[in-house]
């Protein structure tokens, strides 16, 4: 399998530990993963490359995750965004879904849960493409 066929995922979280755990898990599941702990770099990368799936934290030092996911959706509406946050409230969940987020996971979550969610997002991507 070459990289072009792989589903591409960008992960943004300002806590390194989240990236350290997510990257190998996603790689082992066969995804092409790029991980960022700082949003400006992630923003820049989004402009260069279209990712199939974006996984992002909501509350990070310096920037607003909402802003980032809005940016992602503007740049590429096809990209499926999964929000991960330690400050899960009904309001933020609602706002995320209004902005077209695919799913919303409260931290801490199980690796199995996020892999499941990513798989579902993949299915949706495929459906969208075949349309």
């Amino acid at each position: 399998m070459n990289d072009a066929q792989k589903t591409s995922i960008l992960v943004l979280d300002d806590e390194e530990i989240v990236l350290k755990r997510l990257r190998p898990a996603l790689e082992k599941a066969g995804y092409d993963v790029e991980a960022f702990s700082r949003s400006p770099e992630a923003f820049a990368r989004i402009r260069e490359k279209t990712f199939d799936i974006v996984i992002t934290d909501l509350k990070m030092e310096g920037i607003d995750g909402m802003e980032f996911l809005t940016g992602v959706k503007v740049h590429c509406p096809e990209t499926q965004v999964i929000v991960i946050t330690g400050f899960a409230t009904m309001e933020t969940a609602k706002e995320s879904f209004q902005k077209g987020v695919f799913d919303f996971l409260a931290k801490p979550f199980k690796l199995g849960e996020i892999l499941e969610t990513v798989k579902k997002a993949e299915t949706k991507l495929r459906k969208n493409k075949s349309r």
Binding site: D13, I17, K107, P108, F109
Partner: peptide, 16 residues
Amino acid sequence: GKLGGSYVFDRHYIES
């Protein structure tokens, strides 16, 4: 249970 390894947690979780 978080030490087990199934979970992804961050500093914020530890603090709260």
